[in-house]
Design a protein around this nucleic acid. Structure first.
Lengths: 234, 234
DNA sequence: CGTGTTGAAGTGTTCAACACTTGACAGATT
DNA sequence: AATCTGTCAAGTGTTGAACACTTCAACACG
């Protein structure tokens, strides 16, 4: 094992990080049951440590735990999507209104995120595009200058992303969002906050509608049920 | 509460609940270090279970964990208070604006909370008063009809409450808040949301100022670290 | 007087075991 | 044949003990 870096984080936290990454990347898809012992062995940690990691992620909302029935990757319902976009509206609009005299560095970061987003879209890399799209919005939240609100927003966005990996694969035109984001950025730098908020609101509503529609066409794979599978060698 | 539902919660969750209660009641005061083994034995659970419970509470923000240094009840800084009141402003104001056609039952609950609050104030029971005060505000959040926002608000309020138990003891006139709360209720039922939001904003700012002031006079005790004995100087 | 050393205390992690739930199957029952 | 019921394996919940690692403070040493 490489110890070049000083590990100031516990193993449980690191394991949680690894699993979080896998869930957000879509490597572990919604509904996937996670068993403690196999996963612990796969990552070379003890069962207790794995349990701690899973506890972290289930408190974050990325995993759902049913007592004595196991843990599975969370699945978004349409109602969840509604709630999450509601959260986004409340926080992002507040953030825009708080951007009266934005920090120049933050604006630079926003511009960078915007460019990376556009680049990913041009490359038809939808996963990367989603990443930078959400990063753009996360940066806006920083206008609030409030760690708690930022953390909550991140957590909420992470839940949303779990749901989005389901529909990524060949979502037709994510490119249509480029003008909107660019406009948001322009209005922000111009200090036209009211109009910016208006555009943002419309953007969020469109985005929610699009996701809801796609989710309606892709009904959730399987119920949360985790059952023992007896593999027959066919 | 009804006991009709059977023990469907794990022991770790129950232990977390017990500790949460103790922290919120002020039984465990901010800065108090919590040791795993003694606490586990005191509650009759294993160390691992206690660790899971503590993990839950530290993710909720009620406990602070420093790796290899132990866990202690969280201590609010003035900046924390600022942040928390910022959160409250954002969420509560949003909630008021969402109360265009409030559910009658919710209004009833608000009225009940208001009355219990006033009663506690008249009885000079500050702890109970804080409880019902915060309950009143929590009920307002329900106008949003969003479980995630409610949960986040609850978590944030809990943090605030940890800080408030420090200053309770003889804070003399919490009674001055009665008219404000009553006014909020009246404006809500009358549908005068704009004015209600205005009054609420003022109320929150007053409340924050008062708490900040009191905290300035009651500097927090030393953090987790046990003060060294530096008895003799040359 | 500063600096390493030592040791105790406490957390982080692992391991092995047992209790309890759940879900599914086989046999009994109708 | 369909349904009920007892049994059983798998998996989670919980426990207890053990060991590794970090921190802190007292102590020995130059």
């Amino acid at each position: 094992m490489e110890r070049s870096q000083i590990h100031r984080t516990s193993i449980a936290d690191q394991v949680a990080g690894i699993l979080r990454q896998r869930v957000l990347n879509g490597e572990l898809r919604p509904g996937t049951p996670l068993q403690e012992i196999p996963l612990a062995e796969a990552l070379g940690v003890s069962r207790n440590t794995m349990r701690e990691a899973m506890r972290i992620l289930s408190l974050e909302g990325l995993l759902k735990r049913a007592i004595h029935r196991g843990i599975a990757v969370a699945q978004l319902s349409l109602q969840d999507v509604q709630e999450i976009y509601h959260v986004r509206r409340v926080l992002e609009i507040s953030a825009i209104h708080a951007a009266k005299s934005p920090a120049p560095e933050l604006l630079r970061e926003l511009r960078t995120a915007l460019e990376q987003y556009e680049e990913a879209v041009r490359a038809h890399n939808w996963v990367r595009a989603v990443t930078h799209d959400l990063h753009f919005h996360s940066l806006m939240i920083r206008f609030l200058g409030n760690k708690r609100l930022e953390a909550f927003y991140q957590k909420t966005i992470a839940e949303l992303r779990v749901g989005m990996v389901l529909v990524d694969r060949r979502h037709d035109h994510p490119g249509i969002l480029i003008p909107v984001h660019r406009k948001l950025y322009q209005l922000l730098t111009a200090g036209k906050l009211k109009e910016c908020a208006r555009v943002l609101l419309q953007h969020l509503e469109d985005s929610e509608a699009r996701l809801s529609m796609v989710m309606d066409n892709h009904p959730p794979a399987k119920p949360v049920r985790v059952s023992a599978t007896r593999s027959k060698t066919g």
